[in-house]
């Protein structure tokens, strides 16, 4: 018990929490944008994998880290475009298309990585993002180390939460996006094209997912290896439900999740005799538990997974 408390009051734990939460924040915001417009994007796991590979490779080939992130976003948007084309104008099953995108994007990432990168005994590495201390704020005891000494993409993730929450609730674009997910007929009646909004939303959301993946290889780690996303995409899909499709709650969910993850990592080193697999299982079981807890109260976007065809009910 004392050990648990000791771990929890350590600032380095909280710094790790935000670092672990960063890819989840990007991913969960991306899924949220897609779903708020009415499209479930199960391509997330593969898009994160592709983003991780493309972002890393761009830097490995000599570009700077931010260019790497930008190229990853573009790759994600291309996958998003594909998913949007299949599910929005063609109205195909969002479940099957999404899984197809996940299989395709991850297979493509692995194929291109093998094709373009010589892998020896260890995967090649790049120089990843370094923590950047916010001048002034980082001098605050505890908070300075826990919150204000992070890698730049982490600050970007948190900024995006605020931006997206504001844009969704206070701008015409946000209103149009939300309305497309709730009632596309009403959007049409306003003279807007709901399908065009959905296509853009899926592309933007997929770009964010890829950004989350790219942080894994340019921040959290410094190399790419297959299966590195480890179900983070699926966890993001669960977190969106847990967050009732709200950016603020999504941030909270991602942080709670990361806290649990960082905590169990440290607990593993303290508690002896418990197989490490049990600790590793916990995040997945926790996601399922979170889904059960909120499922009854979840306010699902009304038109989620319903393709829109003009003049059809």
């Amino acid at each position: 018990m004392m050990e648990a408390l000791e771990i929890l009051t350590n600032a380095s734990l909280w710094a790790a929490v935000l670092r672990i939460a960063t890819p989840l924040i990007f991913g969960v915001l991306g899924a949220l944008v897609c779903e708020r417009a009415g499209v479930l994007n199960l391509g997330i796991e593969g898009i994160m994998t592709l983003g991780a590979m493309v972002g890393w490779l761009t830097v490995y080939w000599g570009a700077d880290l931010w260019t790497g992130l930008a190229v990853a976003v573009l790759a994600g948007m291309m996958m998003g475009w594909l998913h949007a084309m299949l599910t929005v104008p063609l109205g195909l099953s969002q479940h099957v298309s999404g899984l197809g995108i996940t299989l395709f994007a991850s297979a493509l990432a692995y194929y291109l990585y093998r094709l373009w990168v010589q892998v020896g005994d260890l995967p090649p590495t790049i120089e990843p993002f370094q923590p950047w201390a916010v001048p002034g704020l980082s001098a605050i005891p505890f908070l300075g180390e826990a919150v204000f000494t992070q890698m730049p993409p982490t600050y970007l993730a948190m900024l995006l939460v605020v931006l997206l929450a504001w844009a969704l609730n206070h701008t015409p674009v946000g209103l149009a996006l939300r309305m497309t997910g709730e009632n596309p007929h009403a959007v049409e009646a306003q003279g807007l094209n709901p399908n065009r909004i959905r296509i853009w939303a899926v592309m933007a959301g997929s770009g964010l997912m890829a950004l989350g993946g790219a942080f894994l290889t340019t921040g959290a780690f410094n190399s790419f290896f297959p299966t590195m996303v480890q179900g983070r995409g699926w966890i993001c899909i669960a977190l969106v439900v847990f967050a009732s499709w709200r950016p603020g709650k999504a941030l909270l969910g991602a942080i709670l999740f990361a806290l649990f993850d960082a905590f169990q990592l440290r607990l593993q080193t303290v508690v002896e005799g418990v197989p490490y697999q049990l600790f590793l299982m916990a995040p997945y079981l926790l996601s399922i538990l979170a889904l059960i807890l909120v499922a009854r109260r979840a306010r699902v976007p009304e038109a989620l997974m319903q393709p829109y065809r003009r003049g059809e009910r």
Partner: peptide, 27 residues
């Protein structure tokens, strides 16, 4: 049963359980 009883989407739960089972096999 989670879907029928609580309305939890089975896509996510079955996907997450794949990871749990693989760890269980390791165990």
């Amino acid at each position: 049963i989670l879907r029928l009883r609580f309305g939890v989407d089975e896509v996510v739960t079955t996907l997450l359980l794949n990871f749990v089972v693989l760890l269980f096999v390791g165990l």
